[in-house]
């Protein structure tokens, strides 16, 4: 799934950045958004729910919906279930 359809209070793991442009990808990377990192939707902007605010390892990162669509994520499997 893409990050723009993320739900609040659910933790996701970033799978991939869906951009062919180095500049965009490295911008994501520098904000700490790259494969393997945990991410969680904190809130949506009051108007049209765009942009979105995420928690990335303690930092608050704002992305527009369009930008969030470039981030592929999957649900984090809770460790407690596996053990």
């Amino acid at each position: 799934m893409k990050l723009d359809s993320a739900q609040k209070k659910v933790r996701y793991i970033i799978k991939n950045i869906l951009s062919v442009e180095d500049e965009i990808t490295s911008r994501f990377y520098k904000l700490g958004i790259f494969p393997g990192i945990e991410i969680e939707l904190l809130r949506k902007a009051p108007i049209f729910s765009d942009p979105l605010l995420f928690d990335v390892e303690g930092a608050q990162i704002a992305l527009t919906k369009g930008e969030a669509q470039l981030v592929e994520v999957e649900l984090k499997q809770e460790l407690s279930c596996q053990q």
Binding site: R27, L31, Q60, A62, T64
Partner: peptide, 11 residues
């Protein structure tokens, strides 16, 4: 240069 929002909201 394309524009982005993509930013960190500082504490």
């Amino acid at each position: 240069s394309p524009s982005y929002l993509m930013m960190e909201l500082p504490p």
